[in-house]
Nucleic acid binder design. Sequence first.
DNA 1: GTCTATAGAGCGATAGAC
DNA 2: GTCTATCGCTCTATAGAC
Lengths: 230, 230
Amino acid sequence: MQDSEARQAFDGTRQKLLSSAERLFAERGYTGVSVRDVAGMAGVNSALVAYYFGNKRGLLSAVYLRHCLPLNQERIHLLQKYEATPGGASLEQVLDAFLRPSLAVSPGNDGHADYTRLRAILSCENSELLNEVIAEHTGVAASAFLAAFSRCLPYLSSKEILWRFHFLIGTLYHTGSHVSRMVVLSGGVCNPGDVEETLKQMIPFLAAGFRASAPESGTEAPLAQKLQAV
Amino acid sequence: MQDSEARQAFDGTRQKLLSSAERLFAERGYTGVSVRDVAGMAGVNSALVAYYFGNKRGLLSAVYLRHCLPLNQERIHLLQKYEATPGGASLEQVLDAFLRPSLAVSPGNDGHADYTRLRAILSCENSELLNEVIAEHTGVAASAFLAAFSRCLPYLSSKEILWRFHFLIGTLYHTGSHVSRMVVLSGGVCNPGDVEETLKQMIPFLAAGFRASAPESGTEAPLAQKLQAV
DNA sequence: GTCTATAGAGCGATAGAC
DNA sequence: GTCTATCGCTCTATAGAC
């Protein structure tokens, strides 16, 4: 360990506020959490939110940006690793590259599970912030994966790829944001908190769904060309 | 039409409050909407919320109960209709029976699309009300469909059925609660507001996912017996 | 940097006139 | 039934002491 220096950075007030906000926003959404709640969990005064982040929205933005770029970089990195293998990336590998980093849990800053839950909740609250901040950063990774999917499934038009990518996002967000409910509902049999178990269930399901033949065959565009429009 | 009597019931203050609340809660969630907002959209005074529903929570509960039972009855009715055909219900028909009523849109009280969106948002806000009110009424329909799925897919254990049902819910909720975003993202190519188009895309995708061979084969329970535990 | 104290706004709920 | 008026509370944000 980098001893006291690293520990101080991790335990600093700014970081404690970020971690508390990440947890609470992921649990109860943006409007359901007050800055007092966040400051209380961090063990500091609520006025410090304004000091460090300007206002409540700045705090949310900081939480978001803390994970957004790293997560998509991990996804792209994994995708490139899989594509470097002979024969390129399989559909299962493309799915793994997209999903695995979103579900990763770790004590430090490298786990994005809370962030995925936060993302799911914010996307339901349809705050303006989501439409503003998010669109900039997700576009790059999204189009890279859309291209990877159509490389694996050349018989699908871009329309089908888009629909199925939408379904993929729904499956990911719902799984990431209803962990405890799933445990209760299944009587403990299914545990979305177990990353490997979740991937083992999700990837075959989604891969089969993506591979299904197109609902209306033949009349659609040839896919690869239309991907520019995304 | 039942002339003025039916019209009066539909335009009554109570109904206007219910309709306004349904729309607004579906758009911005429970905590994001004030009773003043609801009363304003209904064109009446905010004190009438207390008069008709006791308090804000009572309003939400009324909105919920207005759709909960009818929706599940329509699902069960469709399922029974499909199961009455020779050979029983196909997997695609079971999916259709579950999904179609949730996505139906209609000017009157019979469309559940707004309700599905409301359900998706509330399930993200994880309010206590959801865990209280919802659990009572959804259990019946859910277990009927879990049984129907395992009848179509006898080689799957209850564990896999539960996981895939969870994925189905995620796909449905995300599609139902991000209609406009999907339209924008796809450049107008994909429109989840079109019920038939949505079903034509969702059902083949989900059916293929459900039919995928189990991720870990052989070692699981024989499925039908374990369904009691749900 | 961290705190106390508070301004200013919006909320849910209710009392009471009509 | 529907309204006005208002209480009591919580929220975000800020000013200013230390």
